[in-house]
Simulated assay, not measured.
Amino acid sequence: MEFDEFVASRRPALVRAVVLMGSPIADAEDIVQSALTTCYRHWAKVRRAGSPEAYVYRILVNTRASAWRRKWRGELPTGDLPDAITDADLTTGLAVREALAAMPATQREVLVLRYYADLTEREIADVLRIPPGTVKSRAARGLAALATTLRSPDAHG
């Protein structure tokens, strides 16, 4: 597959994966753009990889980590507070995103790469540079946390 075909078919999924990992949509788009720029410069190497998609996700995870370290996260004072959320009927997608946001980033990354990006445990291990057993244990703990959070009465408003 050529680079332009890859971007056309996979960019929305890459942005969504970064959002699911906990980045705001605007930041996710910037992170994906930076990652794809890196991929473009090394496309021949990416294509030769055993799993090009996993290789791109590794670049994406690394780019996200670098962006997170550089970003200033200070609070800015404001005179106006946002309106409280009054809609008690949250959608399942919102509940899942909130549950993902509440878990450690290490578990969230594994769950997003496994169940959203559909990478294998071996590919995730390669992307995150951790042993496959760590992928399995993080996934198990993450799924247990999601199940507990989504079953609790507080999870739906």
Rank of each mutant, 00 (worst) to 15 (best):
I31M: 04
I31L: 03
I31Q: 01
V32L: 00
V32P: 00
S34L: 09
S34D: 15
A35F: 03
L36S: 04
L36N: 02
L36Y: 06
T38I: 14
T38K: 11
C39N: 03
C39A: 15
Y40A: 10
Y40W: 14
R41L: 14
H42E: 15
A44P: 01
A44K: 13
A44W: 07
K45V: 10
V46M: 10
V46N: 05
V46K: 06
R47H: 06
R47D: 07
R48P: 01
R48I: 03
A49I: 01
G50M: 04
G50L: 04
G50P: 01
G50E: 09
G50D: 06
S51C: 06
S51I: 01
S51E: 06
S51R: 06
P52M: 04
P52K: 05
P52Y: 04
P52S: 06
E53L: 12
E53F: 12
E53K: 08
A54H: 01
Y55N: 03
V56D: 00
V56S: 03
Y57P: 00
Y57W: 12
Y57G: 02
Y57C: 08
R58P: 01
I59A: 07
I59N: 03
L60C: 03
V61R: 00
V61A: 07
V61E: 00
T63L: 01
R64V: 00
A65Q: 07
S66M: 11
S66L: 09
A67V: 10
A67P: 00
W68T: 15
W68V: 15
R70A: 15
K71I: 05
W72H: 12
G74L: 04
G74C: 08
E75G: 08
E75Y: 13
L76K: 14
P77H: 12
P77A: 11
P77I: 09
P77S: 12
P77N: 08
P77W: 15
T78S: 14
G79R: 11
G79Q: 11
D80Q: 13
D80N: 10
L81S: 10
P82F: 09
P82M: 08
P82Y: 11
P82D: 12
D83N: 09
A84D: 15
A84C: 10
I85F: 09
I85T: 11
I85Q: 13
I85L: 14
I85N: 12
D87R: 14
A88C: 10
A88S: 13
D89I: 05
L90T: 09
L90W: 14
T91I: 06
T92M: 13
T92A: 11
G93K: 07
A95D: 08
A95W: 07
V96S: 03
V96T: 08
V96P: 02
V96D: 01
V96F: 09
E98L: 15
A99K: 05
A99F: 09
L100V: 01
L100C: 02
L100A: 00
A101Y: 10
A101F: 10
A102D: 10
A102Q: 12
A102I: 03
M103V: 09
M103R: 03
M103A: 05
P104N: 11
P104D: 15
P104W: 02
A105M: 05
A105D: 06
R108Q: 12
R108H: 04
R108S: 02
E109R: 10
V110E: 02
V110R: 01
L111W: 01
L111Y: 02
V112E: 01
L113C: 06
R114Y: 04
Y115A: 07
Y115M: 03
Y115G: 08
Y116F: 13
A117F: 02
D118W: 13
L119H: 00
T120W: 00
